[in-house]
């Protein structure tokens, strides 16, 4: 790992200022960034830790009934504290292992937008809003392909607000080595329709499966999806599975999520 300076500001304003320096980078829980630095795939001049910013911690409910989660909240904190949105709490409790959950943060996961990460599926299926130090971004505009988001250089994810669906569930088929999602499907049923977001499967990162959303909005039952699966075209193919296999899994995991949704 190349050396860097380290700063740990106590407020969002100070963090934004510190990130103004050339080649400065935010540090969340470090569960993705530290391994990346070890491989010398990144060489920031300065890391600005977000873990000391109390205004980015914590979980609450806003006046619109949305569950609001501070951008530096750890996966463990969400698993424990997001009981108003059980499917989200369960998703957080299934990320990695306890030690990863004790450090990794929701903001870091969303900024990274790994194509196999879990949170992007919850954010997109819930139609959540991502708040940064500068603006708010709708989930539908935020995810822009593998490891790509709407965030600008130095922009910090400070909070995420999740509308709570009537019923929801996340089903993750674990890639056997990394235990990330080989395919993960988050289904969220709202009064005005169903949203289905799929992670792990597509070369374009997390996506909404429109066909399943239409079928489930008409009839919210696993049978409504019968043998449905998205096209294998554009699905990830690697040593863990072909694109056809992943497309098939998307159908299976979506049906399981619908059956389990509560």
């Amino acid at each position: 790992m190349y050396n860097f300076e380290f700063e740990k500001p106590a407020s969002i304003a100070d963090a934004v200022a510190a990130l103004g320096d050339e080649d400065a980078q935010a540090l969340g829980g470090g569960q993705t960034l530290i391994p990346t630095l070890k491989q010398r795939l990144a060489s920031p001049s300065k890391l600005v830790s977000l873990t000391g910013i109390s205004e980015m911690q914590g979980i609450c409910m806003d006046d619109d009934g949305r569950v609001c989660i501070g951008g530096a909240s750890t996966h463990a904190a969400v698993a424990e504290g997001a009981s108003a949105y059980p499917a989200l709490a369960a998703l957080a409790g299934g990320i990695g292992d306890p030690a990863v959950r004790a450090r990794g943060t929701i903001g870091g996961s969303l900024a990274n937008n790994d194509p196999a990460a879990c949170y992007p599926a919850a954010v997109l299926a819930s139609g959540a809003t991502i708040f940064t130090n500068a603006r708010e971004i709708a989930a539908d505009d935020y995810f822009q392909g593998m490891f790509t988001t709407a965030l600008d250089e130095g922009e910090i994810v400070t909070e995420i607000k999740f509308p709570v669906p009537e019923a929801a569930n996340y089903q993750k088929f674990e890639q056997p080595a990394s235990r990330f999602a080989m395919v993960g499907v988050f289904v969220a049923k709202f009064a005005d329709g169903v949203r289905v977001a799929v992670t792990g499967a597509s070369e374009d990162g997390v996506f909404r499966w429109a066909e399943a959303e239409a079928a489930l909005s008409a009839n919210f039952s696993a049978d409504a999806l019968a043998d449905m699966a998205p096209a294998a075209d554009g699905m990830i193919a690697d040593l863990h599975g072909t694109s056809e296999y992943r497309a098939h899994l998307v159908g299976v995991m979506t049906r399981r999520a619908v059956a389990a949704a509560s």
């Binding site: 380290f6 540090l27 470090g30 530290i34 830790s49 463990a76 292992d97 030690a99 004790a102 450090r103």
Partner: peptide
């Protein structure tokens, strides 16, 4: 040293963490 094995687990403020994936300054 790649966050996989857990041989380096210690407790920081009561929580188990992988010490190979945390900066000393943190």
């Amino acid at each position: 040293d790649t966050s996989q094995c857990g041989a380096c687990v210690v407790h920081v403020d009561g929580q188990a963490v992988k010490s190979c994936a945390m900066l000393a300054m943190e």
